[in-house]
Design a binder for these strands. Structure first.
Lengths: 323, 323
DNA sequence: TTTGAATTATAAGTTTTCCTAATGGTGTTT
DNA sequence: AAACACCATTAGGAAAACTTATAATTCAAA
């Protein structure tokens, strides 16, 4: 019996969904289905009643679930206690982060961490989202700070915060004088943007499409810094994460234009390898950033109420439109 | 993390030996070594100190072990509770047994069980040791009653009892008048015996060899009943399990000759599939036979004392010489 | 110290298990 | 009823675990 199978079953019980559980564990829905089937087979008991939607637990399933929560909790605490013996709060802590986080959050975080744990040597390496993920998988970095965090078989992702995306333009741009614009004011404009292969760009496109706004992205780049410079040089405009343009906005090099109907955020997250849990230092660093213990995301169960969320649920962890 | 890995680690901690733990779990020593290595890797801590013999647990290993005992115990109880929900005390209970057990123990056991659980239909099928094992693996029988029980990857074996092996002969045989003989009195005799491929025969051979007795097994059979008849027809002698010759010994058709120096027993055991635990009925039947709950064998730890056992430890579960 | 017995580690290859992708079937909703 | 969201099933491929064979240790005895 795989320990993971038991965790998955618990997740199913909590979320009342095979597919949701599959997602947070970074495996396919099929894998989850088979795992549960095998579990039921071995116990010789039906644990889940699939004849209803959303699914419900049988009484055996309910007993099993509440027992497991207790047991798995104990196991995790035990493993944590035991493995912390070999994990000192000294040595190097390699962290990989995307550029924007590196510029905006890391300096403060490193300083704060150095005060708390002076014996840890935090090493930071900056790169694109993909590079960060690769670094973590390869073990070159213990923690990764990424956008659009997603769990996979190799990686555990923890949601951190949602960073606002701002509409900015050069001071010489048509929009520069306005403090607030309507979506239709943007229709047909030329802008500088991210490459269309990037997730952030796809999110922006989808929001624009839904608002009926056509933007002409004539110049595309794979990183935010180049976009900033292009906007300045070409006296153009674009959508950028707030952290990237904070300095330019403050010193007037760029103008931030509000457009309430188009407010967007991109999710930032912390990732680490699934196989070997992070070192003590890594754990503490992550917890410090989060302001809570560094544990995998778990959706709280909706308490009785059956109201639907206002936003598209399929985008829950991907983007959100700030009203 | 494999649940089995944790069980194996506990077994190692109990027995203070990789290879012993491997044996009771029916896997190779290599598999155990690799499993523990992986476990240590994932926890990032050394659990076992291999630089000493017998091995010892590190302090982390000790903490982990005592925690696991508790946790695994809870899990087993939970699984038992949950799975018992789907296991009724009715229906068929297919059991496979070797001939000798079938003749001697099963009739009484079936009767007793029928009294306790009248709704269970116990079906018995008799065959050679190998056939019984195959039946259990194939799922045709839920329980198997075998000699020389051994755990494997597919099968869990529980020791049941040690059946005495008797030296018997036809009433017309030279030995028939003696009630007690010395090993040397047997030297050079002709006998009827089991095929040399059978484990029981190999055990007998090894005991004879150690006593310096040469026996000429001119006729060999693959089952005890044929041997009984051959002994009678040929006015010969042979070694046979007690249960097999009980009737003949009682009615004088065969004579039992004591030979203290050559006293032997063969271990009998109950087996069942490792993958899906036996049904409630199977569990109860096995427990009734054993006189204790049907649980895998676990050797008690020698309490502090470091004395060596008198008998050859490698034969502990295989045979024993009754002093 | 060397030799031997017993035990664990390691390597290579095989088997088993698990997972993914694709697809089919079933409740729910519109 | 059609569309939808969800779970089951299947087949094939990827990963994990296991086995056999062999090397390296430890401990004990010569």
């Amino acid at each position: 019996m795989q320990l993971r199978t038991l965790e998955i079953f618990c997740e199913i019980a909590r979320r009342r969904s095979f597919s949701k559980a599959a997602e947070t564990h970074g495996v396919s829905q099929s894998a989850v289905s088979q795992a549960v089937h095998q579990l039921e087979q071995q116990l010789g008991v039906q644990l889940i009643d699939r004849s209803t939607r959303p699914l419900s637990l049988t009484s055996a399933g309910d007993t099993f679930h509440s027992g497991l929560v207790e047991i798995l909790g104990r196991y995790h605490r035990l493993a944590e206690e035991v493995s912390s013996a070999g994990r000192e709060m000294t040595g190097q802590l390699p962290i990989a982060a995307i550029y924007s986080i590196g510029l905006s959050y890391m300096p403060d975080a490193k300083e704060e961490f150095a005060r708390l744990y002076p014996d840890v040597d935090v090493r930071t390496h900056y790169g694109s989202n993909e590079v960060v993920i690769k670094d973590v998988i390869a073990g070159h970095a213990e923690l990764g700070l990424v956008s659009f965090p997603r769990s996979s078989k190799e990686i555990v992702a923890v949601a951190w915060q949602k960073e606002p995306i701002r509409l900015v333009c050069s001071p010489a741009h048509t929009l520069a004088d306005k403090t607030e614009v309507k979506p239709k004011d943007l229709d047909g404009l030329e802008m500088v943007g991210f490459e269309s292969s990037l997730e952030l760009r796809q999110m922006i496109d989808s929001v624009l499409r839904r608002s009926g706004v056509r933007i002409d992205f004539q110049n595309e780049f794979d990183n935010a810094d180049s976009i900033v410079r292009a906007i300045q040089v070409n006296e153009s405009a674009g959508f950028l994460p707030e952290a990237v343009i904070r300095r330019e906005a403050a010193n007037g090099a760029l103008r931030v234009v509000a457009c309430r109907a188009l407010s967007m955020t991109r999710p930032l997250g912390i990732i680490f390898r699934r196989s070997d849990r992070p070192s003590r230092a890594g754990y503490e660093f992550g917890s410090m950033l989060l302001g809570r213990p560094l544990e995998p995301d778990r959706e709280k169960r909706s308490s009785g109420s059956h109201r639907k969320a206002a936003t598209n649920p399929s985008l829950d962890n991907q983007t959100s439109i700030v009203a």
